[in-house]
Amino acid sequence: MVNQRNIEDLCICCGSFQIHTQHPLFDGGMCIPCKDNFLESFFLYGEDGYRPLCTVCCSGEILLTCENPSCNRCYCSECVDALVNPGSSAKFQAMSNWKCFLCLPLISENGLLKKRRKWQENLKDFYNRESQRSLEMYKAVPAWKRKPIQVLSLFGDIEEELINFGFLENSSGNGKLKHLVDVTDVVRKDVEEWGPFDLIYGCTPPIGQLSEHPPVWYFLQYYRVLQYAKPKVDSEKPFFWMFVDNLVLTEDDREIASRFLETDPVTMYEMCDEMVKNAVLIWSNIPYMKSNNSALASDWDLSLLAEDIQSLNDFSLWPTRLVNKCFIPLREYFQCFSKDHTS
């Protein structure tokens, strides 16, 4: 603060001087451990729809929550007190309708915690540059420009999940869901007439559910329809896709899916009495899916895991039970209606 050192030469997450890159959101540097933690944790969301970790350091406790209806970010008292001013976290906590540092205007004075001029673009570039693989991301849409989401759901019905997160309501114009069970006769013209779509969802049937088609058929049909629905290459319109396997694809089938979709899957699961109750593999370009915190240990045998789950004799768990939290990041791109119809 007395110009003895450039803030970009300091990791604003932990205070280290071993700088690897710049923080994507705020003025300041970032060391390798903090960079790795940021990549894994930034898109995690809690059950209440808020990010449970600090926006600056992606850790921390005693969190301040932004009260802007279009924001879901939190900040830890350690970062706020260190970068803004000692005691600032208590001051902000006592305020009503507190707006966070990314919601405030660029000229706002908050000590050393200053948001970057184009932080949304910086975040995308940061992930593309620092991730082991390029993560397809879109620029967040300002709340006043967000439009209702248009969804095409293949095989599995996700209406309940979209309603729970406020994407679908009974009133007209509040989002649209088209659900198809059989797409054998669907051609490009059909998809273009139904669309344009913002999210294409598809899944294999649950373990133990009889089907006239082999499991890989569901993926190949999904991939075919996905090509029909994708926007043009130069389009900046946010477009998301997700395919879920309920552990019925073979190892060769999973390799085919990863090659076609150009990304590896993440495994999500439910635990009950220290036992995996249900698990799914998910391929998606939704930001949350990059997080390693949602993945199983890589040395788990998925075929044995599927057998263990099947032995529970509970085939009622549809994959959407596990992927619903993945839809929360979509609130940054599409209109979301709260239950009291005020947002």
Rank of each mutant, 00 (worst) to 15 (best):
R5A: 12
I12F: 05
T21E: 05
H23G: 05
P24G: 12
C31K: 03
S41C: 12
F43N: 12
E47R: 12
R51H: 14
C57W: 03
E61T: 14
E61G: 09
C66L: 04
N72I: 02
R73E: 11
C74R: 14
N85W: 09
P86H: 01
S88Q: 15
S96I: 12
F101K: 07
F101T: 04
L102F: 06
E109P: 00
G111S: 00
L113G: 10
R116H: 07
K118P: 00
W119V: 04
F126E: 14
Y127V: 05
A140K: 11
P142M: 10
P142D: 12
K147E: 14
N164A: 11
G166E: 12
G166W: 01
L177A: 04
L177R: 04
D185R: 12
D190G: 01
V191I: 15
G195N: 04
F197Y: 07
F197H: 09
L199Q: 07
C203A: 15
F219V: 08
Q221P: 00
R224H: 09
Q227K: 13
V244C: 13
D252G: 07
R254L: 12
R254V: 12
F260W: 03
E262V: 05
T267F: 06
E274M: 07
V280Y: 02
I282A: 01
W283N: 02
W283P: 00
S284L: 11
M289S: 14
S294F: 10
S294Q: 11
W300K: 11
L302K: 13
D308P: 01
S316C: 04
P319L: 08
R321W: 08
C326P: 01
P329V: 10
